[in-house]
Design a protein around this nucleic acid. Structure first.
Lengths: 168, 168
DNA sequence: CATATCTCAGATATACTGATATTT
DNA sequence: CAAATATCAGTATATCTGAGATAT
């Protein structure tokens, strides 16, 4: 892409024009546009850092979820619930991780409908190394300290709660 | 998708496990995960609201940009700069908007290399109506007041600035 | 000729729908 | 038989690369 930074903040400028025309909810508009834009910038950075492991952030999240789970394995459906990913997308992502040698699938002995995804030792190693690389880059949040990071998490938790991501 | 909310906050739980293992930068990890998740939830809502206009949020942003621009038209390349969209993606999105009857393309009289994208009257009408619909839904930020919305914009501006989205 | 603008073809990623097989 | 789980085929969107056409 053409990565020349703009000489002004495009979101601030849009908000000015927005207000000048008397359009509604300029604060919400700016916040949502900021979220979309930041997500785009962060994912580009993180995916670049993860490319050396043949990972994307979406697939990294799956590896981390499996590593954090007690037994290093989890039913396909549960992965989708936790990460809000469509069942068909879970199948596709796990197949991709299988091709990289990071995950294996096996039937659940207690319920033959269920398939368990499990980390391989290569998958566990990739997850550890990738977590180090991402941590060194503070997950792309260069200009932000921990106080600001916690503020983001806290405010966005309200949105997730109101949007039905979780209850309580 | 299976839209049953989880009975707990999956990001808070991941952060607990993260800390328990002594992994690095749990605050940054939670913030980034929250941003990715919220963007996913918001876009799903907004795209559902925009489907009646044959729009996605990405294409709505282009219509709004054209409506806010002085003459209702803009070079393809400039659209890409403003919205951080790849030139090939601009071509594709504008073609899609053209198919919906919302935009026309014409050569720039002062530089024949440039193509100007301009709103049709149907495109202007769709933008106005879509802006009303999105505004009524506060752009998906139901549980958030304007103070919190401005906080989000302000904190995320630091990230965008540090990531080279703009200077100054 | 070198650069700028745009378009296109092809590859990859992700999301969702609807259908299907299998098991509970 | 009804519900749950996972997969697959097909469609849509978005991103990027590399090539090329046209104009400055």
């Amino acid at each position: 892409m053409s990565m020349t930074p703009l000489p002004f903040d495009p979101i601030a400028r849009a908000e000015q024009n927005w207000r000048a025309r008397g359009w509604h909810e300029p604060d919400a508009m700016s916040a949502v546009t900021s979220i979309v834009r930041v997500q785009q910038l962060l994912l580009k950075r993180l995916d670049a850092l993860l490319a050396r492991f043949d990972l994307t952030f979406a697939r990294y999240e799956i590896l981390a979820l499996l590593a954090l789970s007690g037994r290093g394995s989890m039913p396909m459906g549960k992965i989708g619930e936790r990460l809000q990913v469509h069942p068909a997308s879970v199948t596709s992502a796990i197949q991709r991780l299988e091709r990289s040698g990071y995950v294996t699938r096996s039937p659940d002995p207690t319920d033959a409908r269920v398939r368990l995804a499990a980390l391989t030792s290569a998958g566990a190693a990739a997850q550890r190394q990738a977590t180090k690389v991402l941590g060194n880059a503070r997950y792309g949040l260069d200009g932000l300290d921990d106080v600001a990071a916690r503020q983001i998490t806290s405010i966005l938790r309200h949105i997730r709660s109101a949007a039905g991501d979780f209850v309580a």
